[in-house]
Design a protein around this nucleic acid. Structure first.
Lengths: 211, 211, 211, 211
DNA sequence: TATGAATGAGCGTTCATTCAT
DNA sequence: CATGAATGAACGCTCATTCAT
């Protein structure tokens, strides 16, 4: 049993090794720069051994994207947010999301733009009811519920708002990644303006526009 | 003379053929899936002939992206918008933008996600002053100016707002393209909600939040 | 008749145009740099037209080599040599040969190293009797005959000497071409030393060594 | 251990296989005729496997050239030459050089005609001081020093003479290789005449001509 | 006479993957 | 568990050459 367990653990460690090597290659050379050989060289094993732990390159990619995705999700639903006003939480969450994504830009973009079923299992968020089953979206949804709790805003509208905020933020993230040369100052201006101002306009504006 | 013209037309047709084949490959397999050989196979010509019409792969890519980009720009600054209230124009413009982009999803995504200098020459919009030199962004900027003309909103804030609206809309477009299976009804709900409600919240919300 | 002749002349002119374009390309980019397309571009005609004047690339190459070869031959048997002592003529001839070859290095090497029958028809010089039928070698042979005219040196030995001088000079030329970076001074030292000293040693040394 | 060794040996064998295939292709079609794919076809392996043994085409070329060069150098400085008169040694050395080169014509020509830095590192011999640092040339230089030891011949002149003898011999070798059909008898006549007669004229002739 | 469209072969190279050991 | 040999497909690109017009 214990021997069995150790083996299991070793396998997990090796998978981790492979995945983080893959991550770092993607981060250095972009998605297309990733190759089995490069992973092998980085972990100082032969290319073939990788096939003991993953069926093919795509499986590795899916795992890398999942890891990236999880980092983002945990950033969004971070504990540090508890105990503050919902508006403050919303701003914080948005900023956390943006920052976490910008730390793993290629994995993030790859995941968010992949049309593969595997990826969509994690990233899809526009379907009706998504706010109930998608962890990151759910955090956002709860936040909005708090904000709107004394209004008669219906569930559907809250979900729609959450979804729209999510995709808007994604748009900002993607553009910042693509326009890599805008400079740190302008980047921060945009991020601050978006998360501290625009997002609040979206949630508060509803009181007037959604009469 | 006419023979000269016919030849010219045939060249244009062939270029079109190549470009639309490229578009469709990008749509099916992503930007990296595009290869000269695949284009050749799709148009049922030999790979070498492609080099009669384009200097290299990059030129093809740039052309694909420009095609997409141009359709979008003209959609945004369409004439039909004249003579209505700025808010109405804003809603219309947003919707036009989304619809136009969804009509050429491959070129559009390719253009918007390319980090090549050629592409960025057209698509970059986050830098300071972009609203003055980027046609599509300028249309948006003018619209906001009209809306804010009786307030003391400063130029910089208007530009930031325009930029943020642009990237938000982009986020929605991309997500709708990627999550290709959400169904028409939900897609329309999102688009309508975003362009008729959210965008107005963003511009109107400023009056209260930007004290 | 005259129209026939003019056409003939135009054909020759076009051939010349093609060949000199080829020459210049070889001179700029080496033998491998030569391509039909480049010739076409240089003469501002379409590639296909070249095939009206030459059957294929090889025929062009052969012609280029011949032209180069002829320049060399005429350099060796230049008129300016008349009326001087045979030794002086020998030195002059050798130097002329070297200088002429260095002016068209790539064509010259290509010709001299080609094992094709076409090329060998012009360049072969080692076979018995070559000094009688090869113009350049014959010039050299005559010179040696003059030098040896008061000795009982037999024809065969004179031919051998001529052949050996020819190949030796070739060796020097080739090496100078290959070692392109030895500098002008050293190059001139070698050429002068070889043609003014070594060659004379070869012809004069025979009096003692060939007892 | 032994298994390790066997593997090592197999690698060497495969490298040899590749190199000799390359040699033979160069011999048949010239330096430019060499291609990875042709090597692969000749050894009946896939092209890709070649990259397990060599990094790229250039590495193969360099190896081919070095192989040829090494054989020659060792022939020139063969032990058997010790204990004889310097003139005899000179003649022997010359003949050894010619014979060794004719045994590996392809590699030899490839090496001697290559303008690549790698090749020139080995083959360059015309620069001032070359006789001190180039092994084969140094052997020749020492031989000449012995011959001239009782004269007031200066170092520079000895070096020049050595260099000129080297390039002359090269010229003979190349021409014999190119004119592959002159027949054995004539070939031997030329080689004998050159090494037993001409070379001695060159070194002895200096006494009279270099007054 | 001259063109330009078109082909097919070839280039060096990289890759994911398989398999015997 | 791990290796290294090996393959076959694909990549962007260039070329000599042909052919209908």
């Amino acid at each position: 049993m214990t021997i069995e367990k150790r083996r299991q653990r070793e396998i997990e460690e090796m998978k981790e090794l492979i995945l983080s090597a893959a991550s770092s290659i993607i981060s250095d050379e972009g998605l297309d720069g990733l190759s089995i050989r490069k992973i092998a060289k980085k972990i100082e094993y032969s290319p073939s051994i990788i096939y003991h732990y993953f069926n093919d390159k795509e499986e590795i990619l899916n795992n890398v994207m999942q890891r990236g995705y999880k980092k983002i999700v945990s950033a969004v639903s971070s504990k540090e947010l508890a105990g503050t006003s919902p508006e403050e939480r919303l701003v914080k969450m948005t900023k956390n999301y943006i920052m976490a994504a910008l730390k793993v830009p290629d994995e993030f973009i790859a995941a968010q733009l992949s049309k593969s079923e595997e990826a969509l299992k994690h990233t899809s968020s526009l379907f009706k009811g998504a706010s109930k089953v998608k962890p990151a979206l759910y955090s956002l949804y709860q936040c909005l519920q708090d904000i709107y709790k004394n209004t008669h805003m219906d569930e559907d509208s809250i979900e729609l708002t959450a979804q729209v905020i999510a995709v808007s933020t994604l748009g900002l993230i993607i553009k910042i990644m693509v326009e890599k040369d805008i400079g740190e100052e302008q980047r921060n201006r945009l991020i601050d303006f978006y998360s501290e101002d625009i997002v609040l306009r979206i949630v508060n504006g509803s009181r007037s526009s959604n009469k």
